[in-house]
Design a protein around this nucleic acid. Structure first.
Lengths: 146, 146
DNA sequence: CTAATGTCTCTAGCAACTATAGCTTCAAGG
DNA sequence: CCTTGAAGCTATAGTTGCTAGAGACATTAG
């Protein structure tokens, strides 16, 4: 049996985070010792590892909740889990595209800063003036005006 | 003179967000009309565009606060602004690396889910079992254990 | 002049934790 | 056996960057 501290160390999750996961129902309420301390077994460790891993992959806690409920009834078809993974993949690809454009722009900014005064600093200038942006990068304007 | 709505439309920032920026001191308190409504001029528009642009590039509001205070004294050397931009670039590169690994794993998950039952679905398994991860993708274990 | 839209303040909420305070329990050393 | 320090407990509040709602006042189009 593991105390919450050992569990957290093994799963790579901080102690308050484990209690938080229990509080929001991602982890079942743990059994307690005589002195009211939480005790965990192998199943809890696996479940927490699952959550940890999914978080690392960028799944929201809501998506993880869905995945867990799927894995709790393993006779259902795989379609739902597949859909969740596909949605996440699409989201990841969107973020990748954004970050790539963003990186290009930041590199441009950094390269152009020749160490002069702020007055001629391209970092400030580029941030202040949209027209200095690279060609067709439109900075989420579509996203931000709904 | 622009009302807050026009300002927001021109800068691509929602009205409550502008009030929020004023509240946390990123924008100075705006002048008011006879009827107590905020009124903005060209300078406010520029400052807001700067903030908007920097947010799009992923700068935190704290970093933006620093950049703004820099640009308010334009006789200083550029080094600080350069450092902020470089830090931002490094952070973006970290996120890119993570997302790229993540995408590979999600693709693997989606491919392996061939439409069977959950019981044989790798999507769940991959997330639950670290050892099934692709080669050397270590899922931030280093980052998460401080 | 009225109706619709816009703006005002204030409060509360979102995700996903993190931190603090003030206690109790546990494991190990002397 | 006792003490001390780490680890645990609960409960509450804070974080970042907004977003949403309520209820009242201002402005503008027809």
């Amino acid at each position: 049996m593991l105390t919450i501290g050992k569990l957290g160390a093994q799963a790579g999750v901080k102690v308050p985070t484990i209690r938080y996961y229990e509080q929001i129902g991602l982890l079942p309420e743990a059994g307690r010792s005589a002195g009211n301390q939480r005790l965990y077994g192998r199943k809890a460790l696996e479940r927490l590892a699952f959550i940890r891993h999914a978080r690392d992959l960028g799944f929201t806690l809501e998506a993880i909740r869905d995945l867990l409920s799927l894995s709790d009834n393993p006779e259902q078809p795989c379609v739902a889990a597949d859909a969740i993974a596909r949605a996440q993949l699409a989201e990841v690809e969107r973020r990748l595209a954004r970050l790539t454009a963003l990186k290009a722009e930041l590199e441009r900014m950094v390269v152009q800063c020749a160490g002069g005064k702020i007055a001629d600093c391209r970092v400030i200038e580029v941030l202040g003036d949209h027209s200095l942006c690279s060609t067709d990068h439109r900075h989420l304007e579509s996203e931000a005006s709904p």
